[in-house]
Structure formats: structure tokens, C-alpha cells
């Protein structure tokens, strides 16, 4: 069982994190806040969020934003912006590597996951293809 610290973080090494099996929780189109600024938005681009967790307690949570060209059915979403989580990665001495470095490592982890097709299928079902 992964321990959760009093500050809410789950602390673990990147190697341990890589061994955690993440499952899809929910994805959606942006409703509360755009993932890109209006000046950067293109009319055919849609943005949204996706949430992934592990299946044990306490739970690891990672969420990130994505963007997709709605005009092309075969296009998969791509990650944009930084991931958000309750993870603080630690180094070999057990020290925190810090939120910025953790974020960069999480980006690498996400980009290794086979998430785009999962999100695309979920969005198609949730909102109707």
C-alpha cells in the first residue's frame, strides 16, 4: 500500500510509479475553463480533460488536458499543458524532487501511456460520435 503524507502527496520513486497500473476514470470536453487561451484556439480544435487513477487505496490521481482536431475523425487527442496530480516523486535518498521536476517526469510517463485511443473512444461514446 502506498502511504499518503499529511500534506496529501503520495510519495514514491519514478520506478515505483512506472509499475503502477493506471486506469481511465473520466474524460470530458471543456466546460468550466478552456485549456487554451482564445487567441490560441482554432475553430476546429476541441479541448478537454482526462482523469486517470490506480485501483488501490490511497489512490494516485493524474489528470491532464488534451486537444484534438474535430474535423478529422481519425485524429487522436494530444496532451497539452502540464499534468495535475497528488504525486511527489522522490529520489534515491528519499528526498522530494520537487513539483516542477515531478511534473516533467509525469509528462514523460503520460506520453508513454496508450491513452489517446481510450480518451477518443470515451469522448465518442459520452458525447455521441
Amino acid at each position: 500500500m502506498l502511504p499518503v503524507s499529511i500534506d496529501g502527496y503520495i510519495r514514491l520513486s519514478f520506478a515505483k510509479l512506472q509499475a503502477v497500473s493506471l486506469v481511465h476514470l473520466i474524460s470530458g470536453l471543456d466546460e468550466n475553463s478552456p485549456a487554451v487561451t482564445p487567441s490560441a484556439a482554432i475553430a476546429t480544435e476541441i479541448t478537454g480533460y482526462t482523469e486517470w487513477v490506480n485501483t488501490s487505496i490511497p489512490t494516485i490521481t493524474i489528470g491532464w488536458d488534451w486537444q484534438m482536431n474535430a474535423a478529422h475523425n481519425h485524429i487522436l487527442p494530444r496532451r497539452i499543458n502540464e499534468p495535475r496530480s497528488n504525486i511527489m516523486l522522490i529520489d534515491s535518498t528519499g528526498r522530494d524532487i520537487g513539483p516542477m521536476k515531478t511534473m516533467i517526469m509525469l509528462e514523460a510517463l503520460i506520453d508513454e501511456l496508450d491513452w489517446p485511443i481510450v480518451v477518443r473512444n470515451h469522448i465518442d461514446i459520452r458525447y455521441g460520435k
Binding site: 496529501g8 485549456a35 482523469e51 489512490t59 489528470g63 488536458d65 502540464e82 497528488n86
Partner: peptide, 29 residues
């Protein structure tokens, strides 16, 4: 809060992190 507040926190320059996983209420985390 709704998870959208995380983007606001980042844009406003605050360091923030999740206390736990989202809960789905009426289809919204």
C-alpha cells in the same frame, strides 16, 4: 472545487496539488 480550478491556480501562479482523486458528481469531476 470542479477540476477546472486547477488551471486557474496555475495561471494565477499558485503552487497547488491534489489532495485525492476526483469524485464524479452529476457527470462532472
Amino acid at each position: 472545487s470542479p477540476i477546472g480550478v486547477e488551471r486557474l491556480l496555475r495561471r494565477a501562479g499558485f503552487q497547488a496539488h491534489r489532495a485525492g482523486p476526483p469524485m464524479i458528481v452529476d457527470g462532472h469531476p
